[in-house]
Write a protein that binds this DNA or RNA. Structure first.
Length: 113
DNA sequence: CGATTGACGTACG
DNA sequence: TCGTACGCCAATC
């Protein structure tokens, strides 16, 4: 078990903890894990989330602006937006409406035990 | 082994 | 408010 592998597992664990109808950002996860500004590593971890079990709701993870930048990495790009809308999140032009309202920060939410 | 890239983020003009 | 520049760290070429 290397550091990178455990980091991936930590990312998957947090992403699975995201409540339905909520979203978070790569930076928020990175900050929570202590990787700081290396939010790119979170994105790289998500790249390895394919085929994971239990499934990793990667569609609930977007960039700091609420843009679905990673939708192109799904089996079907439209699937990401479809899943989000299915959970009650409104997506317009690859951007989440009321992103700030639906935002779920692990550093805060998980702080309440 | 050096250069490039990337599911990001912040700073600056 | 929007577009561009740069920093981050690991993987890939």
């Amino acid at each position: 078990m290397t550091k990178t592998e455990s980091f991936f597992l930590d990312v998957f664990e947090i992403v699975r903890l995201i409540p339905k109808g909520r979203v978070t950002s790569y930076g928020a996860i990175a900050k929570y894990l202590g990787t700081g500004k290396s939010a790119r590593m979170v994105g790289w971890a998500m790249n390895a989330s394919h085929g994971q079990n239990p499934k990793v709701p990667a569609h609930r993870v977007v960039n700091s602006k609420g843009l679905l930048t990673g939708k192109f990495h799904f089996s079907d790009p439209n699937q990401m937006q479809e899943l989000l809308e299915k959970e009650g999140i409104v997506v317009k032009d690859d951007q989440i409406k009321d992103y700030k309202t639906h935002f779920w920060d692990p550093a805060i939410e998980l702080e309440i035990e």
